[in-house]
Structure formats: structure tokens, C-alpha cells
Design a protein around this nucleic acid. Structure first.
Lengths: 235, 235
DNA sequence: CGCCCTCTTGAACCAGTTCAAGCGCAGTGG
DNA sequence: CCACTGCGCTTGAACTGGTTCAAGAGGGCG
């Protein structure tokens, strides 16, 4: 925790960074930090939702276990996002489990503190509303993709969202296993592997540093338009 | 419009019915009604979001047109739900189109009125927050289903959600075409038809009045239990 | 009556899964 | 140091769920 940015400054936190100083101070005073290793659970589905969380560092997944034993990965959350507000503020059980998929640090805020802050500060509720709308945006995108795009297209879109430029090269560095990417995209690991194989003809290569992409436009082409079929050349 | 319930009583509206009388009166005074026939657009995607809507009567769909021409039906909204709050309150363009799929009546509220009400009444923002969380619930369910269930299972779940008892019989009355159900479930119309055919052996029959279900438990069984027991794995 | 529109059915085809085998690599223990 | 093992990832072959294309049945309506 020693090198972690002081949370009060909250540069990377969409909730705290937009709250006023008083709100930040109050909330942080009420909270504690949680440190999780990869694979550790933050909370389980269908347990009482008493705390809200802000991801300070790391990556979290939210998932559900279906009655038939299958696991549905709802979302992969980067640092800066929030967890559990929705269930806790409604006094419900958690509607999905949350688990660290990379070493993570979380700020744990009791619902009661959030409740009090909402009552005290009208802007704060508005903040949470904006926050929840961003969450909805992502879910809309997922639903759209799952209903109308193939696995390869969803992968292409995923890579385009995660790609970062580094001295002239385009890299996607996954801080978690491909397994999880597969589940998130609604594919089996084998299918993801094949999807990557298809993109290989379009300049998507796995290197030591991560996944390197030669031609972003070609990827965009694929993610948008199945008919381009540039990558089918070989088959 | 003469026989429509006075909106101030707002029995069926999760936003207005939970707001206090003052808020209701103010908002309704600022608003006007819109009447749409089946197929008429309320607003198009990527146009400025200046109004929020409450569905007073009817059914609406929200959809996106993808670059390749495909239409993704995001949600089917019954009376009582809201439309456009998310985009309007953020001052964005509408992130999806909205269209009547049955004759509908909507209350059109300018964002400015909502904004003012939020500022004036701290409970109102909290109300919208709760509302948006319910929206998220539904999207979570969809993502879960799309990632982990087959078309037949999704249909079974859909029917279970829409079924109503009427003098001892279980009926699903669809106020819109099957075509739309297919799109909502992420299937082609032909596949939906086949899915119905499969459920026919489980006591799901199309009658004149609608879709009649003999055995709810059998349907639940199907929606939950992929008949493949994928648990072989003896250590 | 014929026309349109929705829904259904059939057959070929494609996308993604399942099962099984194999590879590369990190960690462990001899 | 190497061999063993476990795990993440890949690949192949057979298979299933869903799509596509095409044809046909039924119902409402001018």
C-alpha cells in the first residue's frame, strides 16, 4: 500500500475524484482497505450486501454461477470502477459474486456511510447516477455484441478497446488469463484460441510483451463488417 | 386520451408513483403526451437527447443499427418504464433508438424539468438511481442468458417471466410480433419458431388467445438445466 | 378472389462446443 | 542439474445449435 496514491486525491476514481473534498474525507474516514490476491473472493452472490467497493488497483470480475454449474462472467472491472453499490444501496443480496483476477486493492465503504453522504450532499446522488449510467453503457454494448456479432468480431472489438500505443507499436497487455477473456466474450477457451488464430492473418500476433496489432483499421473492419473476410483468405 | 388514468395518481409508474405529490405535479405540468402507433419512432439513435420519457401505456423497443445493417434489439419496455433518462441527463446523443411496438402513450418530460427536480428534491435523484439499478438488473440477466444459455432456454425463461394466470390456465399474451421476441432473445425468427416447436412436447401450445403453458415446472426445468450433465470428471 | 404478411418447415451450411491429445513453460523435488 | 508434474494454451475431428435460403401454410383484408 505504501506507493499507492493517496485516495483523497482520487485521480483515477470516477466516484471519489468527482465528489467534493468534504465527501471524500468523510467516506475515506469510514472505510478500510482490502487487499486481494488473484483468485480471492471479495463477496459471494446471494450474501447480504453491506458494503460498497471502489477498485483502487487491480482487476476484478463479477460473475454468476447458474443452476447447471456454468459460470457467467458479467463484467471485467478495471481499477477506478465501483462494485456492489447497486445491491448495497437497495438493501439486497449481492446479485453476482466479485473476485480478484489480478492482485487488487479495494476501498471498502459501508453502505451506511454512502447513505448518509447521499442524504447530506445532493450532488453525490447525482454522481452515483452518472456512474450507474456508465455501467449501463457497457452492458448495452455487450448485449449488442452478443446478439449481433460473431466471436471473432467480439474479440476484435475487445482488443480495440484494450489496445494502447507504446513507442509506435500497438499493444494489448492482458493482466489476466485468456480464459477470462473467453468467458467475458461468451466463448469457450478453445473458441477464443481459434478466434486469435483467425486474426493472425490480419496482423494480430502474440509476443512476449503481449498481443501486438499491426493494423488497427483492419481490425476495425473486421469488428464491424463480417463481409470483409480478409482473414478468411487462407481457409 | 379520455379514458387514460390521470397520471398524477401514477399507480403504474415506478418514477412518478414513488415521487412526492409536489414533484409529480411539477413534472406533469412541464410535460406533454405523445401518442405513437406501432412502428412509429420516438427518437432515433445519435440524435440530441433533450427529453426523458415515461411509458404510460403500450410497449416500446430500444434498438441499435450496427454498421453492417443488422439491428440489435436491446430491450423491450412495458408500460411503466422510462426511456432516455440516461442519455438526456448526461447531455449526450441517444445511444439507441426507441420505437413503439404496440400503440403507446408516453409522457414527454424535458430534461431541464428533470434537472430542476433533481436539484430541488434530494429524494428524486435517489429515485432515479433505484430506477437505473432495476434497468441494470435486467441487463445482467440478459448478459447471463446470452453467454450461458441456449436459445430454447432463453425462450423458456422469457415465457416464465411473461406468463399470467387466467382462470386456472397459464397464458402468455404477446402484444407484439414474434419477430421481436426473436430479436430480443438474440435469435432469428426461424430459430425462434424451432425453439417453440421443441417446447411443444413440454406443453407449450399456441392457441387463439396466446401461448398456453401446461406445466410451469417443466419449463423451469428446461430453462435451468442443460440436459447435458457436464460434470463427469472423476478424479 | 388474390395479395401481403407472419409464421413454419426443410435442407445445406456455418459458428461454436466438446472431447481428446499435445506443446511450452514455471515450479518442485530428487 | 534434470525429470516430473501441473497448468495454460493450442490444435484436430466429430458434433450441436443456430443461420441461411427457399418453399409453403395460414390468416387478415381490400
Amino acid at each position: 500500500m505504501q506507493h499507492q496514491p493517496i485516495l483523497g486525491t482520487g485521480e483515477r476514481c470516477p466516484v471519489l475524484s468527482r465528489a467534493n473534498a468534504g465527501a471524500r474525507e468523510f467516506l475515506v474516514a469510514q472505510s478500510r482497505f482490502r487487499h486481494l490476491n488473484r483468485g480471492e473472493s471479495l463477496y459471494l452472490s446471494d450474501t447480504p450486501a453491506r458494503c460498497c467497493y471502489v477498485i483502487v488497483r487491480g482487476w476484478m470480475k463479477r460473475y454468476r454461477i447458474l443452476p447447471n454449474g456454468a459460470e457467467a462472467v458479467i463484467r471485467l472491472h478495471p481499477a477506478g470502477e465501483t462494485l456492489g453499490f447497486m445491491d448495497a444501496l437497495r438493501g439486497q443480496l449481492y446479485s453476482a459474486g466479485a473476485e480478484a483476477i489480478a492482485p487488487s486493492v479495494l476501498l471498502e465503504v459501508p453502505v451506511s456511510a454512502i447513505e448518509r453522504q447521499i442524504k447530506a450532499d445532493p450532488d453525490f446522488a447525482r454522481l452515483l447516477l452518472t456512474q450507474s449510467y456508465e455501467h449501463i453503457d457497457e452492458l448495452h454494448d455487450q448485449v449488442e455484441s452478443l446478439k449481433c456479432r460473431t466471436g471473432v468480431q467480439r474479440l476484435a472489438k475487445f482488443l480495440l478497446r484494450e489496445v494502447r500505443e507504446r513507442n509506435g507499436r500497438y499493444l494489448v497487455v492482458l493482466p489476466y488469463e485468456r480464459n477470462l477473456v473467453a468467458a467475458y466474450l461468451g466463448l469457450k477457451p478453445e473458441s477464443l484460441s481459434r478466434a486469435f488464430a483467425k486474426l493472425r492473418n490480419t496482423g494480430v500476433r502474440s509476443t512476449r510483451e503481449g498481443i501486438e496489432i499491426d493494423d488497427l483499421d483492419a481490425l476495425r473492419e473486421i469488428s464491424v463488417d463480417d463481409c470483409s473476410e480478409a482473414w478468411r483468405r487462407e481457409a
